[in-house]
Design a protein around this nucleic acid. Structure first.
Length: 275
DNA sequence: ATGGCTGACGCTGTCAGA
């Protein structure tokens, strides 16, 4: 089973790329970020005609997340609301459509678009901080159910220096600061593993290249799009990769999709092996 | 070479992203 995450920077501008990529890669579950459109304008039919179910949480112009799945989607949670209904910052966190989760094939899929934060001294950074703390509370609550979790999306944080093309140029700057890295680490709670790093421990693996400064042509990127798995599914993962092909195309998103291949559900043999 | 690109909105510019 293939699960993928892709910040498409407007689904309506990128629909042809997304459709072709889905077909040629036979992905089972695709989580999108920055769809940038209200639900009524989301091209649902294009995906349903390909045999996919679609769950969306969008807004005009900015943000927006969606789950596209070949398997039935159930127990959809839009935003933080239902999961952490008593959280102190819920009202402001709900203003931006940045998280959608659902049960698919007995896995809790949580698709996130973490705020960028602009710079560490901005109001937007305060929002980013609140948002990640909200995610932390959300994950603690979900994890009480002990369900397998796949948390994936655009985190707008490079977890380590090796996730940045020239780390010395970005010390303690946005997406690279120790403060953001700690917030993310705390939210993961020691239970969610960055599956890309299990298979690719080395550097020079980017998922985002700035549109400016010929960053793509010079391969000056960052790895800010991640897939995190709990141990129960992590042990079933076969590989994880960043597909740079869509970024090389004409009129691309500035992000490339990240894909994980999982043998799911686990076979009887594997169960016997484990227990 | 890091606010020297891109998309949305809606109009000839402004905001936001990262």
């Amino acid at each position: 089973m293939l699960i993928a995450t892709w910040n498409v920077n407007s689904i309506r501008s990128r629909i042809d790329h997304v459709k072709e990529w889905l077909i040629s890669n036979n992905v089972d579950i695709l989580c999108l970020q920055e769809t940038k459109t209200e639900d009524q304008f989301f091209p649902v039919e294009i995906f349903s005609n390909l045999g996919y179910e679609v769950s969306i949480s969008g807004q005009k112009s900015y943000n927006g997340v969606a789950i596209i799945s070949k398997f039935p989607i159930s127990d959809i949670q839009l935003g933080f609301d239902a999961v952490i209904s008593d959280h102190k910052d819920l009202a402001i966190l709900s203003q931006q459509k940045r998280i959608i989760s659902a049960e698919i094939n007995d896995i809790r899929i949580i698709n996130v678009y973490v705020p960028n934060g602009s710079s560490l001294d901005s109001d937007k950074f305060i929002y980013k901080e609140k948002w990640i703390k909200g995610l932390n509370a959300y994950l603690r609550k979900i994890n009480l159910n002990h369900t397998p979790i796949c948390l994936l999306g655009d985190f707008n944080i490079a977890p380590e220096d090796k996730d940045i093309h020239t780390p010395s140029k970005f010390e303690e700057s946005i997406m690279a600061s120790s403060k953001e890295r700690k917030l993310l680490k705390d939210a993961l709670g020691g239970e969610l593993e960055d599956v890309f790093r299990i298979f690719e421990p080395g550097g020079e693996n980017w998922s985002w290249w700035d549109y400016r400064h010929s960053a793509w042509e010079r391969d000056k990127g960052w790895r800010i799009d991640h897939i995190y798995l709990t141990e129960d599914i992590l042990s079933c993962a076969n590989s994880c990769w960043i597909d740079k092909e869509p970024r090389s195309r004409d009129k691309p998103s500035d992000h490339a999709p990240v894909v994980v291949d999982i043998s799911w559900p686990p076979t009887e043999i594997e169960n016997e092996f484990f227990f």
